[in-house]
Design a protein around this nucleic acid. Sequence first.
DNA 1: GTCTGTGAAAACCTTCACAGCG
DNA 2: CGCTGTGAAGGTTTTCACAGAC
Lengths: 262, 262
Amino acid sequence: MATGRTHRPATRSRGIPEATVARLPLYLRALTALSERSVPTVSSEELAAAAGVNSAKLRKDFSYLGSYGTRGVGYDVEYLVYQISRELGLTQDWPVAIVGIGNLGAALANYGGFASRGFRVAALIDADPAMAGTPVAGIAVQHTDDLDRIISDNGVSIGVITTPPGAAQQVCDRLVAAGVTSILNFAPTVLSVPDGVDVRKVDLSIELQILAFHEQRKAGEEAAADGRAGVDGDADTDAPPMRATPAGRKGPDGDMPAVMPA
Amino acid sequence: MATGRTHRPATRSRGIPEATVARLPLYLRALTALSERSVPTVSSEELAAAAGVNSAKLRKDFSYLGSYGTRGVGYDVEYLVYQISRELGLTQDWPVAIVGIGNLGAALANYGGFASRGFRVAALIDADPAMAGTPVAGIAVQHTDDLDRIISDNGVSIGVITTPPGAAQQVCDRLVAAGVTSILNFAPTVLSVPDGVDVRKVDLSIELQILAFHEQRKAGEEAAADGRAGVDGDADTDAPPMRATPAGRKGPDGDMPAVMPA
DNA sequence: GTCTGTGAAAACCTTCACAGCG
DNA sequence: CGCTGTGAAGGTTTTCACAGAC
């Protein structure tokens, strides 16, 4: 068994669907904003608009948590903030360790929204001995050699990996061995972890590629719209970067560009 | 209609399901690694393992693109790389503008994996006049005042927002007005955009909250495991941060913590 | 009357399992 | 044989639409 279990078996964990869990933070953020403006109650319609979902979905989501609304009125903002926080486990504080203090790791360490809701950057870890002791966002960077001790001493169960891709799996293994059971991975690598460890990934380049897919569709479907047409940057050589050896296949379009020594 | 359309209407765009599109970049990355090691062909089983999915899913995904495999053999690596790249629109080059050159924006500008596949950082834009002209990752930062011109001059259709949350919607509006039709949003805000504009969001704190949810579940279900028990950091005051006015409701557990002057 | 909570229907996604090509 | 491609089955998620609480 070498391939990583990345996603949990979906709907489990006391009945709340995974899709709903993924939206609770959105609701919480919208509710927190309302709370700061001292808005006492909110309807499913309003809250849904603020969170960017539709109201039927929101009501169904909330129905998994319990009956927290009042018919004809809406939801009590403070009360919902508390219930969702509790459901998400944010009424306790989660010490987090960031491993790999390059540009991105430092950016995350400095990110304010981090600490705001239940999370606390407990340690910054890097493999570069020259960085040890350097303060980043007010926290001294520690060396990878001490990873085990740092994790245990701080009771860290959530780790963030911002190392180069080549180091990610090794760091992951060490984090897991030290007791981390949830990992947020920014390295563009598929991580293998034992059962019981959760991995979520954030991947820049994947998001851009998904956007490019849709962007291409738009360009293709609306042949020539109107204003601002092809103002192209400076000379781009559009040469297809391919050389390969396939045989005749059945594809929807564009079979292969250049030389094919089949 | 003020609330932003964040997700596309799902399966459309010439039949490829959205879930499949989201995995194509994963396959592409795994294939690129194989290609660099000069592996000529790969089976669905092997490729699936490398991409962290199961093989049935992978085969179904590929079936939406066409019949690109050879029974009894597998898939030609180079050929698939090309087909997926083409499907994702990566055979052309996409100039990208990053708006908001703080820690995160700078980190993205420096991120190598950016340029590797079809994307090119064409412009860095920031609202701070003091930053104008400063080179970041070898590119001079330009001022927000020139946003429109910068977008048009470079033919940018994909924008990345890394501003503080308060500025995000405004920047978004300006990007859209200038012709951007795809946005990658790192600010923790729900963006409103007109139809036809795609928004994807990357949200740190949401990912952490989802992990916390599962982490809490684990802690709750395995009452007291064994080794490394509660070594807590320095004194944390665990006072529930609540004061509100709800009435008796039906929830699964923990109705509200402290003083309730209902 | 208003707005929640929820069964039922519809859409979507994943997994199974096997026919059939090489 | 081995491995792809794919109907069919099984799950999950979204949407609809309305009964019923306030």
